[in-house]
Amino acid sequence: MNLTKRALLASFVALPLMASTALADGLISIIVNDPSNPYWFTEGEVAKKTAEDMGYEANVAAHKGDTNTESNLIDTAITNKARAIILDPANADGSVGAVKKAVDAGIPVFIVNAEINTAGLAKAQLVSNNAQGAALGASAWVEAVGGEGDYVELFGAPSDNNAQTRSNGFETVLSQYPDLTKKAQEVANWDRTQGYTKMQSMLQANPDIKGVISGNDEMALGAIAALKEAGKLDGMVVGGFDGSPDSVDAVKAGELAYTVLQPVAIFSAEAVKQADHFINTGNLAVETEKQLFDCLLIDASNADKYTAAFTLSE
């Protein structure tokens, strides 16, 4: 395990936990996207630690965006008689069948981070308020750019509703500034390497852009690498979204204008607490299925208050 992941794990010790009941036992299965991304790594490890601290066994598995793998992992959870499943779905539509399979087997599913497009299957869907976060980031981006000039956008995975929600949120704000022109938009699937290559091609076609607005930090960090290589980073405004440790380092270094912090450490723990409540009472802790958690802006003014992975202290 590398130093970054050790630091992330160490930071989870400070998370406040709801008192566990004496009945807390059995397995909670946690299924995330790809733990090579620090966001999803944090999501899985926070949920695992929360479950273990409450008395459950817990395991973390990854589907890496593949619905067939996800379906197989759900089958494994059913075979292992999991008391609950914490799932970051692979696909807004394509994951519905896997969730239904678990529900039909009597296992409650608590969705985190990315929604599914069918209501009433999962006991809860706990997600960042992506529209609020996108508007927050876009406003900061406009202020940094100065309200005029050409720019490009890096778009996340089309199978994830968060990608379109963030892009729409950017557009709602940026369209209010007639002197801003979006010259290109490329899908980079939340990936740093794809962000790098897509930025290279957009920069070649649009050498005079003033800024890059990105649907997540990994794509933004890839764009920064491409801009550095081309000698174009000075004066360029790049905005991110997630609040990853690497992105906060880039903010402190003056390479990234800001990142929008998703409270993944909060809602991942909360999903497990709600699962525990349902396991032990048969009732929902929160009646509303879709639960939104507001995002926070991290820029040079408050980056020093970033005290743990995906955690901003007041």
Results as ranks from 00 to 15, higher is better:
218 E>N: 13
137 G>W: 03
282 G>L: 08
192 R>D: 11
296 L>I: 09
286 V>W: 01
14 A>N: 12
243 G>R: 02
51 A>F: 04
73 L>H: 04
251 V>C: 09
187 V>E: 12
231 G>I: 10
308 A>G: 14
141 W>D: 12
287 E>Q: 14
198 K>I: 02
184 A>C: 06
240 G>N: 02
12 F>G: 03
272 V>M: 03
71 S>T: 15
181 T>Q: 12
286 V>R: 09
84 A>S: 14
283 N>R: 11
192 R>M: 13
66 D>S: 05
107 I>P: 05
23 L>H: 10
82 A>I: 00
112 V>Q: 09
289 E>L: 01
307 T>N: 14
265 A>I: 10
293 F>L: 07
88 D>V: 11
92 A>N: 12
187 V>T: 15
100 K>R: 15
183 K>F: 02
94 G>W: 06
134 A>L: 05
304 D>M: 04
291 Q>P: 07
149 G>V: 10
14 A>V: 11
287 E>V: 10
236 M>I: 04
18 M>L: 12
61 A>V: 14
67 T>Q: 05
143 E>Y: 00
248 V>Q: 00
194 Q>C: 00
284 L>W: 02
210 K>P: 02
112 V>Y: 03
21 T>D: 13
208 D>V: 03
248 V>N: 03
23 L>C: 11
174 L>F: 00
53 D>N: 14
95 S>G: 12
113 N>A: 13
87 L>A: 06
238 V>K: 06
177 Y>S: 01
100 K>D: 13
287 E>F: 00
166 R>W: 04
242 D>W: 00
282 G>K: 05
21 T>S: 15
199 M>Q: 12
248 V>T: 01
243 G>F: 01
123 K>Q: 15
